[in-house]
């Protein structure tokens, strides 16, 4: 499996560490309702198909990436810098 790092190009999976679903980018406000924090911390979908998750390119450029992949086919269809995704809203 390879991940197409936007900075480094296609790189082997062993250079990356998995974090979890890209939900982690949408941190609730400090004073958000407990339900919002519960959802942020614990509630995840389990899709058979397209998903987006965070990977850390720790053995490469050290960027956090949002990787788009398909859980059914194992295809990796894209990766963007998490910072850009976050700032794009």
């Amino acid at each position: 499996m390879q991940i197409p790092c936007p900075l480094c190009g296609p790189r082997d999976i062993r250079e990356f560490t998995y974090k979890g679903h890209a939900t982690y980018l949408d941190r609730p406000a400090e004073d958000a309702a407990p339900e919002a924090w519960h959802a942020y911390l614990h509630l995840r979908d389990n899709p058979a198909g397209a998903t987006r998750d965070l990977w850390y390119h720790g053995a490469g450029c050290t960027a956090w990436l949002v990787v788009e992949r398909d859980t059914a086919t194992h295809a990796v269809t894209g990766a963007r810098l998490a910072r850009e995704v976050k700032h794009a809203g």
Partner: peptide, 10 residues
């Protein structure tokens, strides 16, 4: 210039 691994070493 390539930032990568040599075995398990960064």
């Amino acid at each position: 210039a390539r930032r990568t691994l040599v075995g398990h070493m960064g």
